[in-house]
Simulated scan of single mutants.
Amino acid sequence: MTTCTIEQWSERHWVGIPVTAELSRWDRVNALVPHVFAALAAAGHEPLGGPIYQYHRLRTVADPMDVTVSVPVAAPVQLGTGFDTGTLPAGHYLVARPHGGPDALAQTHRDMGDWANQQGLELAVDEEADSIRWHVRTEQFLTDPQTEPDRSRWAVEVAYLLR
């Protein structure tokens, strides 16, 4: 079982690229990560950590989902066409920090959902006729794959905004 905590977060700034993709084409999503880091470097800005995948909308795992591939920054940054900037809002978040990189994420999300239900917590999500929309659902990679090639040792921070 994944260890879950509830944490109070302050507002967190990010810059990133929005994309719609299905899991079978996740290579397209991952390919955006170096573009965000390169654009930040070219503009003279430092990232505050590893990439954050922000999940916005999903119907089923077989359908395309709306995601923003982003990087945390100290203050709002404008990088030009194709890039969005925004903030993860301050609030209470359900958080887990599993090891195992992408391979651990499906189980982590199931465990977090189960734990939230057991605790009587309500995730900030809107269920619509054609999809599920999260106010904030993120996966931030805490381990740099260039310094740790073993995916089983990667740490990820998974977070859901609570209502």
Rank of each mutant, 00 (worst) to 15 (best):
L40P: 11
A41L: 10
A42M: 10
A42I: 07
G44R: 01
G44F: 13
H45Q: 03
H45W: 04
E46W: 02
E46H: 05
E46L: 01
P47N: 00
L48T: 04
L48R: 14
G49S: 10
G49D: 00
G49L: 02
G49M: 03
P51R: 03
I52V: 12
Y53T: 10
Q54M: 13
Q54V: 08
H56D: 15
H56C: 13
H56E: 14
R57V: 11
R57I: 06
L58S: 14
R59T: 12
T60P: 06
V61K: 09
A62M: 15
A62E: 15
A62Q: 15
M65S: 13
T68H: 01
V69C: 11
S70H: 12
V71R: 07
P72M: 05
V73M: 03
A74H: 04
A75N: 09
A75L: 07
A75D: 11
L79A: 04
G80C: 01
T81G: 13
G82Q: 04
F83Q: 11
T85A: 12
T85F: 03
G86L: 02
G86T: 09
G86I: 08
G86Y: 03
T87I: 08
T87H: 02
L88F: 14
P89A: 08
A90R: 11
A90F: 03
G91S: 06
G91C: 07
G91Q: 10
H92I: 06
H92V: 01
Y93C: 07
Y93I: 13
Y93S: 07
L94T: 12
V95G: 04
A96E: 04
R97F: 00
P98V: 02
H99S: 14
H99R: 15
P102I: 14
A104P: 06
A106C: 06
Q107L: 11
Q107N: 02
Q107W: 02
Q107S: 12
T108L: 07
T108R: 01
H109V: 15
R110K: 10
W115N: 07
W115Q: 02
A116L: 08
Q118P: 01
Q118N: 11
L121I: 05
E122I: 06
E122V: 15
L123I: 09
V125N: 03
V125R: 07
E127Y: 09
E127F: 14
E128C: 04
R133Y: 00
R133M: 03
W134Q: 05
H135M: 05
T138L: 05
Q140E: 08
Q140W: 04
Q140D: 07
L142N: 05
L142E: 12
T143A: 05
T143S: 02
T143R: 05
P145F: 07
Q146A: 13
T147S: 14
D150T: 02
D150I: 07
R151D: 02
R151H: 06
S152Y: 01
R153G: 11
R153P: 01
W154T: 06
A155V: 01
A155F: 00
V156N: 02
